[in-house]
Design a protein around this nucleic acid. Structure first.
Lengths: 120, 120
DNA sequence: CCGTATGTACGTCTATATTCGTATCAATGA
DNA sequence: TCATTGATACGAATATAGACGTACATACGG
């Protein structure tokens, strides 16, 4: 079972903010925001697949991304029109300067450090 | 001990989104956004004080509100300039139409319902 | 048809969040 | 000075989130 994508009018602001309030999901969304559809594996390849599956569900269920099954991929796409319609300006302020995004790099670096600490 | 208010430059986007991603805190912030300082007791009087204390801490620590001790009150104020400076447009998109805010009413109604369910 | 690639499903462990009763503290005012 | 008011501190219970190993499903390419 692939998901419950909420209808546009059922997207809740607090759910969207909760979904984006996680550094991994925020980094993922910032990556997805560039271009059209992305296969899961292209987004944050460092993070274990089952961990990302968990985060994709959170993003789907809150209405932040579409996920559709094509071939053997589950492609992700930001629901930009729906979010802009429901909460004008929100995505723009969150995605902000996407070029050479420092948060994504920082998130990945922090993840790597925490993994090292966990193994030590 | 009253709080660790982060400096403007230390406010993190994911922390702000997490703080605002809770319906009670979002309703509280929307109330605080109107006017200047507010005593805690004026904001969501239905919610138990110790519960609100917990949420005030979350909002303080993430940098969403200032809280200062005056007389016997701990007054709350939205850190609008700091947030606008760090994340332009974010607050505007979240506070949106503040007049006759449906989310606040909805949050309170939902809270009351859940309390009834808990007692049943 | 069998191996490989892409992801999800499931289960588990741990950590963090949420709620709130009770105790306490500090400032005020009678 | 002593009760009242506004709010935090503490502690405990419960719930939710996060991370991820393993197993499984599905689609493709030979």
């Amino acid at each position: 079972m692939i998901a419950r994508h909420p209808k546009r009018e059922d997207i809740r602001l607090d759910a969207v903010l909760t979904a984006l309030g996680n550094p991994i999901r925020l980094a993922a969304v910032r990556t997805i925001a560039v271009g059209g559809e992305h296969p899961c594996c292209d987004v944050l390849p460092q993070i274990p697949k089952s961990t990302m599956t968990h985060h994709w569900r959170a993003l789907r269920d809150s209405g932040v991304v579409w996920q559709r099954h094509i071939g053997r991929e589950y492609r992700l796409e930001l629901r930009r029109e729906d979010l802009d319609s429901r909460f004008p300006g929100l995505l723009d302020s969150i995605l902000g300067p996407l070029v050479s995004d420092p948060l994504t790099q920082e998130t990945i670096a922090e993840y790597d450090r925490s993994r090292q600490g966990a193994r030590a």
